[in-house]
């Protein structure tokens, strides 16, 4: 079960570190750093159900405005 209550001893320190992580990076570099971070954390958490709940919460309320280079349905 995803814990959405405070679980950090020093929340401001962690938030500051997250912001500092991206200092002077281009958007593409930031995207790569975030991807690495998510992969590392996902593996550390290890609980697929918790990860699904976190993904659902992260995606909540966002209506897609972009478009993937999506595969086509073929017959």
């Amino acid at each position: 079960m995803l814990n959405t209550e405070l679980n950090l001893a020093a929340p401001d320190d962690v938030y500051e570190a997250l912001v500092a992580l991206h200092r002077d990076l281009t958007p593409a570099q930031s995207r790569l750093v975030n991807a690495r971070l998510i992969l590392l954390l996902a593996n550390h958490i290890g609980d697929a159900e918790v990860l699904r709940q976190a993904m659902a919460r992260a995606r909540a309320g966002i209506e897609p405005e972009g478009r993937d280079d999506t595969p086509q349905v073929v017959a």
Binding site: R31, L32, N34, A35, L39, L40, N43, P71
Partner: peptide, 26 residues
């Protein structure tokens, strides 16, 4: 990869695979 984010995850996986065992499985 079908968009920028999936390319970032792909490249991040390959990059981590050098020294992180879990990433090699991905």
């Amino acid at each position: 990869p079908k968009n920028e984010a999936s390319r970032a995850f792909r490249d991040a996986t390959l990059d981590l695979a050098r020294d992180c065992g879990f990433a090699r499985s991905l």
